[in-house]
Design a protein around this nucleic acid. Structure first.
Lengths: 193, 193
DNA sequence: TTACTCATGTAAGTAGTTACATGATTCC
DNA sequence: GGAATCATGTAACTACTTACATGAGTAA
């Protein structure tokens, strides 16, 4: 259910087309909630119909057109409601951990390979997220700048701080995954000898 | 796609009915991969049809019957293939982190409440998982005992070690979530003053 | 006979995945 | 004229959720 809220959150920074939204999902809010293009367009339609968004057709070149979406008052209210509402947690489901619990059935080399990839994956994520935090702190993120632009200056610090905070959670997660994978590699070494 | 593998993994310990499987999902493998009863029964049917499982109708009392499922050679092969295959990762999607990134739109008291609940949730999980590890180490888990029973003794330690390892990952995760939430509570305190 | 456990399902809906499909615009 | 970008969709499928539904067995 978070896709609608991610969309609302992005559009409060600036009205944009579905195409632009797709790009932003790949490069900003998508670090926390990815969505394929094929899911975004239909969702924009239903949110428009529900009154959370309004849209306006604008010319594009000579013959073509584009539809620009903006958040309505109802959409803003829904965003405020969502941020203040109690969290709902997805069911506990972790395919990687599940598999690890049954590594005795695997080829040890294959298990080792998986754990190396796991650590590598989160090392890459760690870097990406660290860069992201630096960019947010330095206000180098275009969408964030636009967001701050129509916010009173005394709220800027809190706005930035919460974005940083979210990514700190991702970083903490990444670190714990890397440590876990390394512990697993050590276990495999021990079992080999 | 892990549900089928979770089912195979449980059934290699001991053949059982759908009903029993549902119980085991709530109390053992379900810590890593939960599934509702309404999903398990249909999945058993399709896995039976695919030849990963075989089933046998057994009498239960005077008139009633029950269907007991067991893993076929094809099922065991599929399990081995899965454990050795490269990991496939779900898309990055974290509704809690997404919301935290937009806490500037929330009521501060509500955000505080959410972070307290987040920490509490993972503190409870931490306890459960810690107990689980203790039970596994002491071989107090009935299903694990059955699994070890038809395994040569020299493989017992590795089998137990991998289960412990999986839960250590969950514990590491829980710790990092608790620390993150506490960091958030501190941030909110700072913003209030 | 009542309550609880054992046992097995279905149905309708939501969310997300993978793949396909089309056409105008802009820049070289 | 061709390639990359801008722009918008649809279709089929899989996984999961929530809710409903039924009946026999067992123990007090």
């Amino acid at each position: 259910m978070s896709l609608r809220h991610a969309i609302l959150a992005v559009l409060t920074a600036e009205p944009m087309t579905g195409y632009d939204l797709v790009q932003h999902f790949d490069e900003s809010v998508g670090f926390l909630w990815t969505a394929p293009q094929s899911q975004i367009y239909p969702t924009l339609h239903t949110m428009d119909a529900e009154g959370l968004l309004r849209s306006e057709v604008q010319p594009r070149g000579a013959r073509a057109k584009k539809r620009v979406y903006d958040v309505t008052a109802a959409g803003r209210a829904e965003l405020a409601r969502w941020t203040s509402e109690r969290n709902s947690y997805p069911a506990d489901r972790d395919g990687i951990r599940l598999k690890a619990a049954f590594y005795e059935l695997a080829d040890l080399d294959a298990a080792e390979q998986q754990l190396r990839e796991h650590a590598d994956r989160y090392r890459r994520r760690l870097e990406q997220w660290q860069e992201r935090i630096d960019a947010i702190r330095a206000r180098r993120v275009p969408l964030l700048r636009k967001r701050l632009h129509h916010l009173s200056p005394d709220r800027h610090d809190a706005t930035v701080a919460f974005k940083v905070f979210a990514f700190e959670g991702q970083i903490a997660r990444a670190r714990s995954e890397i440590e876990w994978a390394e512990r697993g590699l050590e276990l495999i070494r021990r079992l080999r000898s």
